[in-house]
Design a protein around this nucleic acid. Sequence first.
DNA 1: AGGTTTATAAACCGAAGGGTTGTATAAAAG
DNA 2: CTTTTATACAACCCTTCGGTTTATAAACCT
Lengths: 117, 117
Amino acid sequence: MAEDQLSATFTALADPTRRAILVRLAQGEATVNELAEPFSISLQAISKHLKVLERAGLITRGRDAQWRPCRLETAPLDSASEWIERYREIRRDQFDRLDREIQRIREEHKEQDHERD
Amino acid sequence: MAEDQLSATFTALADPTRRAILVRLAQGEATVNELAEPFSISLQAISKHLKVLERAGLITRGRDAQWRPCRLETAPLDSASEWIERYREIRRDQFDRLDREIQRIREEHKEQDHERD
DNA sequence: AGGTTTATAAACCGAAGGGTTGTATAAAAG
DNA sequence: CTTTTATACAACCCTTCGGTTTATAAACCT
């Protein structure tokens, strides 16, 4: 799984625990223990989640004595957002085209009505 | 996995095959066979992918004789995009705050320089 | 030096993911 | 009414995932 950047990012975002960690990190740096505190799962499980986030490039980790402060990185979020927006737009364009088509057909009907008059 | 809507959406987006299917569907409706055509995997595997996409609400399926045309639905993409944008913004705000802080400190230094003059 | 705190690594487990093949079903076509 | 076409379902295989427990490393505190 997740060879490519985009897959790794979406995979990382697919887990509620990992999303919650990112939400917390949006407020600023935090250590592993701080990040683990709100959850009822083991520290090791959190450590694994952090590794997934790190592999996806969504966080980077510093070193401060025995602490490993985690920092949120937004670059992968940018790519992910871009991908989604692209296909949302395509659909919007389609609807626009459809609207124009409907408009065109309406105009035709109007003309026919006029002819009938 | 993927009890909640957001997790289901990101899980669906995490697979390259499924993303490719969505890209194709952004151009318009397609049948299962049409969607499967570009891939070297079995039709059944595609069928499974479609079920994942359907469960996430990313596609809906109609019925036209023995065909099941798939249509892209953008609502979950909207939610996903919203989620990402929220945390991108928070980070941007943080940087803005940081910029203001740096600016403030610079001003202080200027004042000190003036005092020294 | 010895013990505590912070974090990772390794081995394991059950569940889910992505794939296969084989079989069913439903509608169209002959 | 049999056959083809389009799709779904079920069983199975192997890998990955999310979690656990146990053990280890590294830096701090006396």
